[in-house]
Design a protein around this nucleic acid. Structure first.
Lengths: 335, 335
DNA sequence: CTGAAAGCGCTTACAG
DNA sequence: CTGAAAGCGCTTACAG
């Protein structure tokens, strides 16, 4: 079956032209229903496989989408983005596209080397997963190949972004804590590290504002250095009644740190996370958190890139995908 | 820069033919060094991008490799194979190939539906990651498209496999335990579940045989049901001094189960795992384990598939990639 | 409803 | 060292 059957082969067997075969297999107009059936059956029988490359030559579209993930987002312990890619690959397939993963190395990012699949015209567009340097984004944007940024945004308004509604999610979470009677609520996260963390912080802050709870500087706790590497979390002298962590992993680490100091969660204080990743269930107790709806985000991103490829006239902007509150045992009502 | 520059465009600007441009950019013979340089420079300047599809039409090769992972191997908590894919994607890129991930659904596996990228001739071959049903493998093998199985093997000798040396790794690990004075050593894992587990078990058994330690039935403990779903592990009445677990996750769960029964690791008994995945470091104490060298395995698999594509005459067989012992705190010497 | 012709962008084999 | 011709397998626009 290692075949090289072409439309012409099918055509000559049936005594018709390859144009007719093309129309039949493509379900186009201009072939009698009867002949169409016969052609399809014979194609099946002969083990015909469509040659995408020929269509690519004609149309100029490869029906492949490049997905770029920076190396640093896919370490041995971090698979959030790899799972994201899984959703993208599946969703792309449903749209008749294929996903090609490109892991971006630090050197390439620094030296503004675009992926080889770009130079080879192997893809019609790119979905870029997670934050990259501004210079790299600019280099990419200059190519004018269709681009969608996923789980990240900057202030460059002419670009397209699909992000989780970090702001609203953390706002909702903080509201929930307040409804449980908490008023001394700390935020754990480096607000200068990523735009996600920043927005989550602002959602937390909005909730405080609405409830007229003052923002206290000692309740904004750093969790990572400039390079994004986690650091030891310094617990404030006066223990808050609840900690809002910028992500589950940090919540997980915080709970362990607290335990070592003899502080029990949720008895002595409550802790919440964000993402609903593996750390949310590994933590003891399980974390109340906000689930990032990666499936919906993947759908939105695929939808957007496909539209951009098909029509040049697309309004750019941010798509916010709503997350989902997940209630577990890490919060205690203190009413 | 949304360009459609072709070789012909470069050629006409320089007053040469597109054949010459093709030779120059492809570093082929038959163009003067001087002209070659000029062409390359102009190509760069004009933002020329090579059109892979045209080459594919000529050669019949897409320079894409499909990577198949069954849905069930990529759950929210399991990212072993996704990380594997990451290594594959990177290694493929080094070989001028691109990886296309295909998540295989249960329905498709059951109904023997081959990936769309197969029917579209989008890939030159497949790397299949993890175990699939025999029927599906057969359907795949019947197509005669080049195939390499990664991290799995069956008795079909005419196929190609790249696997970690499960047998030797567990043999080495059990030897280590015995050298630490252990003789009451249990094995945790369903030996009928996958070939990996079976081989790990046999490596354990070989070590026992060599040391004239009898294999005790009550020391072979089941960890999952027929469908591969984890079950509660029943601790034997007479506690062994060491548990050899078929993977880190099971070791992690075992340690938690033991702790709930008041049994401390490694004080009361030792526990070892296999894989060196996230559970090896999440466990307390950290697990002594065998690291699966996924990078080397990915290299071997890519190497093999590329060779198969380039030449039809390839000897099939198994490639065993040696794992690496990782020593942590979960083993106590009882000498 | 059916098909001859042209063309997508490259490479190979051959001629000069 | 350089290039004209043919061909890879399909689709589109047009003619019948």
């Amino acid at each position: 079956m290692q075949n090289n059957i072409t439309m012409r082969d099918i055509a000559s067997k049936l005594g018709v032209s390859s144009v007719t075969v093309s129309k039949a297999l493509g379900d186009k107009e201009g072939v009698s229903e009867e002949l169409k059936q016969k052609i399809k059956e014979l194609a099946q029988e002969m083990g015909y496989r469509y040659n995408t490359a020929a269509r690519t030559m004609k149309e100029g579209f490869s029906y492949n989408i490049g997905v770029v993930i920076a190396d640093r987002y896919a370490s041995r312990t971090q698979s959030f983005y790899l799972q994201f890619y899984q959703f993208l690959a599946t969703t792309l397939e449903e749209e008749q596209y294929s996903g090609i993963l490109h892991m971006l190395s630090e050197e390439d990012e620094e030296q503004l080397v675009l992926p080889r699949i770009y130079h080879d015209r192997k893809v019609d567009g790119f979905i870029i997963l997670g934050q990259l340097s501004n210079a790299y984004i600019e280099a990419f944007a200059n190519t004018e190949i269709p681009l969608v940024f996923l789980d990240f945004y900057t202030d460059q308004t002419e670009l397209d972004y699909v992000i989780t509604d970090n702001f609203y999610g953390m706002y909702e979470m903080t509201n929930y804590l307040i409804s449980c009677g908490h008023r001394d609520i700390a935020f754990v996260g480096n607000v200068h590290s990523t735009s996600s963390i920043q927005d989550r912080f602002l959602g937390y802050y909005k909730s405080l504002l609405e409830h007229r709870i003052p923002l206290r500087e000692e309740y904004i706790m750093n969790d990572r250095d400039k390079k994004g590497k986690f650091i030891d979390i310094a617990i404030p002298d006066k223990l808050p009644t609840a900690f809002v962590c910028n992500c589950d992993q940090v919540a997980y680490m915080l709970i362990n740190t607290l335990r070592k100091q003899g502080i029990q969660v949720p008895e002595d204080c409550s802790v919440v996370g964000f993402d609903n990743d593996i750390y949310a269930t590994l933590a003891e107790p399980g974390l109340t958190t906000v689930e990032v709806d990666r499936k919906e985000m993947a759908k939105a991103a695929v939808n957007k890139i496909v539209n951009k490829i098909r029509s040049t006239a697309t309004s750019s902007g941010r798509v916010l995908v709503r997350g989902k509150m997940i209630y577990r045992q890490s919060v205690k009502s203190i009413l």
